[in-house]
Amino acid sequence: MDGVRDNHRDFLDATLPYLDVVWQVARHAARDGLEPEDLVQETYLRAYAAFGSFRGGNARAWLAAICLNAARSDARRRRRRPLEVTGLPLADVASGVSRDREPDVADMVIASLDAKLVARCMAKLAEPQRVCIVLVDVAGLTAREAAEALGCPRGTVLARLHRGRRRLAGLLTEAGMSHGRA
């Protein structure tokens, strides 16, 4: 019994530092009717149940994969409409801007972006591209970790990522944002 108690403490020690990563993934993977907080809880309960078989690899990628699978299972059960990213408040954009350069026109335009507009444009991306962008650009996984979470080669993640980013930029341009030469 003590083993179980220790096991759950070990599990929380190993996984709670990545709560923010799971949260970012859950917010974008939760379909209508499923609260992101509930998806995070479900992710951790599934991860805890499987902790005995976790071989101590990359916990971030492992949790992200469980979160995506839990969201898929829930969606399958509900049989509702496809993923829609709902309205999201504007976050601190400065954190995403490279620190080694002065902010340029594109950065300033991006800083003024409406998160709801970005979310609407994200929802128009093909799901494989959107998932890669969520894992890497939103949740902060490396391309290698995203590949591990998705069970595909790193090159596939990179290709989807670049195509998705370009498509997202194109959709934002169509929606009225310019990203031409500064």
């Binding site: 949260w23 970012q24 917010r27 954190s95 995403g96 972006l113 979310a119 980013r165 934002l172």
Partner: peptide, 18 residues
Amino acid sequence: RANRVGRLAAQVLRQPAP
């Protein structure tokens, strides 16, 4: 340029966990 704009725009969607 488009790659960078897409990456930075996606980062706007980050939100701290409750």
